[in-house]
C-alpha cells in the first residue's frame, strides 16, 4: 500500500460513487414514474447494471478483490430477472 493506492481509493469513494448516485436517481425516477409495466422492468434491469458499477467501485475503494465475484453474481441474477419478467409480460393476458 502506498500513496497511489490511497489516492485511487479516495477517488473512488469521493468522486465515482456520488456520480453513480446521479445515474441511480435518474433510473429510480423512471422506475417510479414509468407509465407501463415493461418500463419499470427496463429500469430495474438498468438498476442492477449500475449496481455492478457500484460494487466494483467499492471493490477498488475498500481494496477487496473478492467483491468482483459479487459483481459477477449480480450480472447473472439480473439476466435471470430480465428473462423471467419477459416470460411474465408475454404470457399475461
Amino acid at each position: 500500500m502506498n500513496d497511489y493506492h490511497e489516492g485511487l481509493q479516495l477517488f473512488m469513494i469521493y468522486v465515482i460513487l456520488p456520480l453513480l448516485t446521479i445515474g441511480v436517481l435518474l433510473t429510480l425516477w423512471r422506475l417510479v414514474r414509468g407509465p407501463t409495466f415493461p418500463d419499470r422492468v427496463v429500469a430495474l434491469d438498468k438498476l442492477s447494471v449500475i449496481a455492478i458499477g457500484i460494487i466494483l467501485a467499492y471493490a477498488i475503494g475498500l481494496n477487496r478483490p473478492v467483491y468482483v465475484d459479487i459483481a459477477l453474481i449480480v450480472a447473472m441474477l439480473s439476466f435471470l430477472t430480465t428473462v423471467g419478467f419477459g416470460y411474465y409480460i408475454e404470457r399475461r393476458v
Binding site: 407501463t36 450480472a75 439480473s78 439476466f79 428473462v83 419477459g86 409480460i89
Partner: peptide, 22 residues
C-alpha cells in the same frame, strides 16, 4: 457474460412488450 446476455434480455423484453401491445 454481460456482452452476451444484455442483447438477449433487451430483445426479450421488447418482444414481450410489443406482443402485449405497448
Amino acid at each position: 457474460f454481460i456482452f452476451a446476455t444484455a442483447p438477449i434480455g433487451a430483445h426479450m423484453i421488447g418482444r414481450a412488450s410489443y406482443a402485449r401491445g405497448v
